[in-house]
């Protein structure tokens, strides 16, 4: 969503102040209404999701995108049967998430003051995920260049990349100004989320992750199978937008 459309922006802003419901996934406008006599009907009230667009990065710079794809392939390495995180689209997933409402922390409570608290009180950072990724990926490349002779993370041999990640995980690889350990935790979570989310969001391309584990996807009826115990469900996965097999 771009804020260059003034009408949209004004409406959205007003709803942000006074509105009582927002859809993070669509731009459906919500207005207070009186309902009597019959159930209301608002076409597409639930805002069907849009498919992540193919094409250039929407949030990452080229350098960041390369780093992200390299991270995705370390976290989910390719093997003979299943592509790795990069080819499964996990970096694209993270990019589209950071470019969207999640990256902007839309709908979250972001009023000051921002104070550090205990772990049990939850994240209190003033920065959103988008800004956090931007700073942390830059710090990761700076750290790698310093340690491995001017090479950014994406250009390291696989063994060195894995070493960097193992040390990040342990807290031994320091990123200046950034908590590297919690950043790495976040990257692992986001990449794996993209791997298993519906392909409509850019990751799990061709439902590779669902095929790998045997998850049948966005199906809606297992009445025939609930009582068939210890038998493997025979059908391939389907996504929200359907299945490639349907067109064959």
């Amino acid at each position: 969503m771009k804020s260059s459309n003034p009408t949209w922006f004004v409406i959205r802003r007003r709803e942000f102040l006074a509105g009582t419901a927002m859809f993070l996934f669509g731009a459906t406008r919500v207005r207070a209404a009186t309902i009597a006599g019959q159930l209301p009907w608002t076409p597409n009230a639930g805002a069907p999701p849009s498919r992540a667009k193919l094409g250039p990065w929407e949030f990452f710079t080229g350098e960041e995108g390369r780093a992200m794809e390299a991270l995705a392939d370390c976290i989910i390495p390719p093997d003979a049967e299943t592509p790795g995180g990069k080819d499964a689209g996990c970096a694209v997933f993270v990019d589209r998430q950071l470019a969207g409402p999640y990256g902007r922390r839309e709908g979250l409570y972001v009023r000051p003051p921002f104070q550090a608290g205990t772990k049990s009180q939850g994240p209190q950072s003033e920065k959103g995920p988008a800004q956090h990724y931007r700073e942390a990926l830059a710090a990761l490349d700076r750290g790698c260049k310093a340690k491995y002779g001017e090479r950014p993370f994406a250009d390291l041999p696989v063994a060195d990349k894995d070493e960097v990640l193992r040390e990040l995980e342990k807290g031994d690889f320091k990123l200046d100004g950034i908590d590297g350990q919690s950043f790495f935790e976040q990257v692992v979570k986001d990449v794996q989320m993209g791997f298993f989310a519906d392909p409509i969001y850019g990751g799990n391309r061709d439902m590779v992750a669902w095929k790998m584990i045997g998850y049948p996807g966005a199906r809606y009826n297992y009445l025939d199978w609930v009582s068939r115990h210890n038998e493997r469900f025979p059908l391939p996965p389907v996504g929200i937008t359907g299945s490639a097999q349907w067109t064959r």
Binding site: T42, N44, D198, I200, G217, A218
Partner: peptide, 11 residues
């Protein structure tokens, strides 16, 4: 209107 079986299965 809001959670039809065409796209509600979205974790």
């Amino acid at each position: 209107t809001d959670f039809p079986p065409t796209y509600m299965q979205d974790e």
